[in-house]
Amino acid sequence: MKRIAGFALNYYKVILLFAILIVSSSVTQDPVQNIKNMIMIQAPFVMIYSFGMTLAVITGGLDLSLGSIAAFSTCAAAFLIIEDQIFVGIAVCLLIGAGLGLLNGLLITKAKVNPFIATYGMDWVIRGAVYIMMGGAMIYHFSHDFKVIADGSFLGISNLVYIAFAILAILMFVFQKTVFGRNVYSTGANIKVSRLTGVNTDMVIIIVYMISGVLASTSGLLYVARLDCAEAFLGKNFGLQALAATLIGGTSLKGGKGGVGNTVIGVLIMVFLMNCLNVLKVSTLWQDAVFGLVIVVSALLEMAKQRYANYLQL
């Protein structure tokens, strides 16, 4: 009994993944195409901004401003890209992402605002700024050269997958293999010890939020290229979905644990779940409620795991 419970708690993610997969494929006519669609097209977007959230969660915070950073940076860049200045546009987009992330980081480290409140507040401010900038308009009909970033494929696999996995590889390397990555984990696990060991914890946190901002604007850019449209409402659900994916993936809110690898599984669970609801003809209006439930459930699972671990040790 003890063993089964332990197994279930350790591998619940994989079990969940397969359960959802089986349910969703059993009701679709073309399960292979369906799964391919999810992995090729839907998952990469979610993955990229969820990585941003995961990094923030590892430092012991979180980033709820992902969606509005994506909207603001892409809308600003869209003005350039529509004039065919694609590279300048992309550079501006990523720079704005980094800049807004920097603001988040400064609010959290220097002004000592709780990360939740800081990024939630920034979300509102940035979203307001996007509304002002766009004034209700949209920018669309981009050139083919730009759209191909998201639409194109290589060897039959969507560019999105390559981009997402390139980012994953880089992040895995940086956060598992470098001194900086180690400092991010130690800062998340215990900021006081890390500071007393000579780690510049403020800098670590600021850089992580900047990376998170860049990842948000990257995924925003891909969305714009895919939808061929930049609008102020982009990414309304990013924060919520990314948090759900990160937590169900097993990165702990306490910080210092988990990683982007876990989040890949978390994202797959979320994407499959959404798809499953789609297939079952559940209204998309349920989305918010489902995200919320996933967050609660994963927090509860995390707690159960913790208790079980303590129980095993004694």
């Binding site: 400092n183 984990y185 000579g198 780690v199």
Partner: peptide, 21 residues
């Protein structure tokens, strides 16, 4: 427990923490 070592990390992580850079 709060300021000396990171309890949730391994001995290895803690020992090399300061010397890493």
């Amino acid at each position: 427990k709060e300021e000396g070592a990171i309890m949730e990390m391994s001995i290895r992580h803690n020992i090399v923490h300061a010397v890493l850079p």
